[in-house]
């Protein structure tokens, strides 16, 4: 029973993610897009946990679905962009070109990844321990970690400067 459930859960979540992605891309009102994105992120988080990446899944909820989406919604309301833009319909050429680009990317990336397609991923396995991952973060990937802190600092500084009315 349990395998069935897990597999069903996986495919359901996949559907939810895809639906949420479609919603983000296609909905008219920006707020609805944001909500759709939020939905997608939460579903993704569940997917991560299903795949055994518990730390990633939880951090996804805290950082992505929590902080980032809050920012987005805040920005939407600050700019009064609750209403969809009054814009003329998009030219067909643009749509076709965009569709072609996206489809092309999809196809090629899948093609590139076919080398690994003999593999199977186990659902709800033993997750990697947090200690192990922390050991990697603070061990092997220390330089990257430090750079990341710089990046965040730059982001903070930039956001603060941008927010000031007068420098």
């Amino acid at each position: 029973m349990r395998p069935l459930l897990l597999t069903a859960a996986f495919y359901l979540l996949s559907g939810a993610i895809l639906a949420g992605a479609a919603g983000t891309v296609l909905l008219r009102r920006p707020l609805y897009c944001a909500l759709s994105l939020l939905f997608t992120l939460l579903a993704t988080s569940a997917l991560y946990i299903l795949l055994g990446a518990e730390l990633a899944g939880l951090l996804q909820i805290i950082v992505y679905a929590g902080a980032v989406m809050a920012l987005f919604i805040l920005a939407i309301h600050m700019t009064g962009q609750d209403e969809p833009l009054k814009t003329p319909p998009l030219p067909r050429l643009l749509l076709m070109a965009a569709g072609a680009a996206a489809a092309g990317l999809f196809g090629l990336l899948m093609l590139a990844a076919t080398r690994f397609f003999i593999a199977f991923v186990k659902l709800a396995p033993e997750p990697y321990s947090v200690a192990e991952q922390a050991g990697l973060i603070f061990g092997r990937y220390t330089p990257q970690f430090e750079l990341l802190s710089l990046l965040v600092l730059a982001g903070i500084a930039g956001a603060v400067v941008a927010a000031k009315k007068k420098l």
Binding site: L94, A98, G99, A102, L105, F106, L109
Partner: peptide, 13 residues
């Protein structure tokens, strides 16, 4: 990759 492609499509449109 599908999510990625969707995001790409959305970015262009």
């Amino acid at each position: 990759v599908a999510v990625f492609a969707a995001g790409a499509f959305g970015f262009l449109v």
